[in-house]
Amino acid sequence: MITLENSQLKIMVNAIGAELSKITSVKNETEFMWDANPNVWGSFAPNLFPIIGALKNDTYFFEGNAYKLPKHGMVRNNDAVILHERTTNSLKFKLNYSEDSLKIYPFKFEFYITYTLNNNSIEVQHTVKNIDKKPLYFSVGGHPAFKCPVFENEVYEDYSLEFEYIENSETHLINMDNGLISKNTKPILSNTNTLPLTHDMFNDDALIFKDLKSKKVTLKSKTHGNILSVSYQDFPYLGIWAKPTGDYVCIEPWLGIADNDDTNQDFTTKEGILKLDAGNTFKASYSIEILKL
């Protein structure tokens, strides 16, 4: 674990996969991140690149060739990620393409994830550099899991998510057999900005939103008020997820999405896929603000 601290917060990042693993109040040692209990879900905040979610049969096609990538891509749990640069208030990690990565993702890239600590907030910046001679296709996103409930003598149902604006939105349902996005939807937010949290709301996997007006969502407690917020201006998709038995909630800003049930598996036309021309650099950030210090 690599530590970064200021007068308000201490964060810890696991060097393997550059995974944000702890956000702790300096004042009272309150912990805001899920503890990655392996009996429930053994991750803290995987970094998602170059895909989000699952591919059909874990496979995509590019220029007539088939390639396999695991769910959420190649950064998660990857010990080839290195600490590239450290400043007084930031940690910058890097993953470079390799001969092994080219076998599953045929693009020459540099991927950076930078955590910057400013007062009571953490900015998480994703940088993708195309160092190839051809366009690079990718998705990128976050998967931070926040402790819920945060304080003793609370239960999961004491918590809710409050969106920036009044929303009317459906979740796009996941096919439980293969993890792909089905054509079916279910109303979730109906003229409201509040989503009460319950364990059973995740019985059918994640809530997936494609059309939210809000670019900020706040985790709220009935007894302690606003706990933290996630702002995601650069990200058009949002996932909300937890294991039904887990005392946490993931607030997931995404640039990209899992394959649709009816995909033809062409990587260049995959929903949400981004194209980065040769020699260009792409950046996208979200931020976590701790409100209950």
Rank of each mutant, 00 (worst) to 15 (best):
L274N: 15
P106N: 11
T185F: 13
T171L: 09
N14D: 12
G246W: 13
N6M: 02
G225M: 14
P46M: 03
S121I: 04
Y165L: 13
K71D: 08
V124T: 02
T269A: 07
S25F: 02
T116Q: 06
A258L: 01
Y248P: 05
F107I: 14
E170R: 13
I52V: 10
N184G: 04
I51E: 11
F202G: 09
V217E: 07
Y105W: 07
N168G: 02
Y232M: 06
G73P: 07
K108C: 02
K103A: 15
S25V: 09
P50L: 12
L4R: 02
I181N: 03
E5L: 11
H84P: 03
M176L: 06
N28L: 07
P135C: 12
K270P: 12
T198V: 01
T127I: 08
S160H: 11
K92P: 01
E5Q: 12
I11W: 01
D205F: 09
M33T: 12
L173Q: 13
D266V: 11
Y112E: 03
H84S: 08
T116D: 00
D266S: 07
L276I: 10
M176I: 02
D132Y: 04
F107V: 09
H143K: 08
L291S: 15
L212I: 10
I251K: 10
A54R: 12
V140L: 05
A278R: 08
M201L: 09
K213C: 15
G272E: 00
D204G: 03
H172S: 11
Y115N: 00
K71P: 15
K56C: 15
K243V: 14
S90M: 09
F235W: 00
P236V: 10
I227V: 06
G256Q: 00
F202S: 04
K216C: 08
L4W: 03
L189V: 03
M176R: 05
K243Y: 02
D204C: 03
T87I: 00
L117W: 01
G246P: 07
L197R: 04
N14G: 07
T223S: 03
P244Y: 08
K92T: 15
K147N: 11
F93K: 13
N57H: 11
P253I: 14
I240D: 02
T171M: 10
E271K: 14
